[in-house]
């Protein structure tokens, strides 16, 4: 059941693309640093060679650009994986963390953690992540209750999405309200609403990387189970998978994934929708292939979106969530339309 067993050219190609995009991205920014210099700075920092790169350049690459690039890759991988999982569990190709309101739930959790004072539980990044996880979990079960469980995917497509969107709105309204009451923390909270990699620190990168890696590995190991679950609860039952138990297991792990990403980078929508959907064209729906490809594809997409966010209106920065919404919104509408026409099974 391990995922990399079958040939998976899409995943391999996208994985190879990741380091290329990392260094292309490292060359983008206010200070003029070339692609080659960026590569050299990293090699020198690791201690593999000595190229005499100036200290400020090394600092910019290692402490400013690289953390945010890596965080965008981690966030992309996490959101795309979570999207693929939600789609399988809900048997609905329009499900994803943002549209289901789960990102907003995580964001509300994070906001509360900031307001009641960070660090009282597990250190500042840790407690924000923990609260974000609690928020996302609460949301997913709330949306589940509203839409009437995961029994029939197509049947309650409307309920699921409407429930998710409504819950998302309510949570964002609560966040706005909390923001008003805590104007001193407004700036930090605003960042959660829009999604951005601006204030990335290595601490955030490492926390997110750990959670995303563990969750992604767990999900990939269970890819066959996810295939079975995607057939619907009756068939899952007869093939030896308890649909409720397995569904809850996958939801918890992907909520953890979403929470880790949201608490490091805020709400970034649609990555979980676009990436698995596009990649199914190449890998088919088999999650043993789709999941690794989605993780790699999500990393690539979000790094590219971050390049756009930094360079389109430089020196001003566009929140990366705005970029993904510009691509994802129309994409979602097209899918909705195709679905209505019955083009999608």
């Amino acid at each position: 059941m391990l995922s990399f067993r079958k040939s998976n050219p899409a995943a391999v190609l996208l994985t190879l693309l990741i380091p290329v995009i990392i260094f292309v991205s490292a060359a983008f920014g206010a200070a003029d640093i070339s692609f080659i210099t960026a590569v050299k700075a990293v090699i020198e920092h690791i201690g593999l060679a000595d190229y005499d790169i100036s200290e400020p350049v090394k600092l910019i690459i290692m402490n400013i650009r690289l953390p945010r690039i890596l965080l965008s890759a981690i966030a992309g991988a996490g959101l795309a994986t979570a999207g693929a999982v939600f789609q399988a569990v809900f048997q609905n190709q329009l499900a994803e963390p943002y549209l289901l309101g789960i990102s907003s739930g995580a964001s509300l959790g994070a906001t509360i953690a900031i307001i009641i004072g960070s660090g009282f539980l597990l250190g500042s990044v840790g407690s924000v992540t923990f609260f974000a996880f609690a928020g996302s979990l609460l949301t997913v079960f709330l949306v589940l209750a509203i839409s009437g469980g995961f029994s029939k995917g197509t049947g309650n497509l409307g309920n699921l999405l409407l429930g998710g969107i409504a819950v998302g709105y309510i949570f964002q309204a609560i966040i706005s309200f909390l923001m008003m009451l805590n104007q001193d923390k407004m700036e930090t909270i605003v960042f959660w609403m829009m999604g951005s990699f601006t204030f990335t620190t290595w601490e955030k990168v490492i926390t997110a990387a750990m959670v995303v890696t563990v969750c992604t590995v767990i999900i990939n190991i269970n890819a066959s189970k996810l295939n079975i679950l995607s057939l619907g609860s009756e068939e899952a039952h007869s093939l030896g998978v308890n649909p409720q138990r397995a569904g809850i297991f996958f939801l918890i792990v992907s909520c953890m994934l979403t929470a880790a990403v949201v608490s490091a980078s805020g709400i970034i929508g649609f990555v979980g929708l676009i990436v698995p959907h596009l990649l199914r064209v190449f890998t088919g729906p088999d999650h043993r292939k789709l999941l690794p490809a989605s993780a790699a594809g999500g990393a690539c997409l979000l790094m590219l979106a971050d390049i756009a966010a930094r360079s389109m209106m430089a020196p001003k920065e566009i929140p990366v969530g705005v970029i993904t919404a510009f691509i994802g919104g129309p994409f979602f509408l097209i899918m909705l339309r195709r679905r209505r026409k019955g083009a999608m099974r």
Partner: peptide
């Protein structure tokens, strides 16, 4: 025990 369910549309196009 194995089961053949009533035809229900699967949302994922497996081979």
């Amino acid at each position: 025990m194995g089961m053949v369910p009533q035809r229900n549309a699967i949302n994922f196009d497996y081979t």
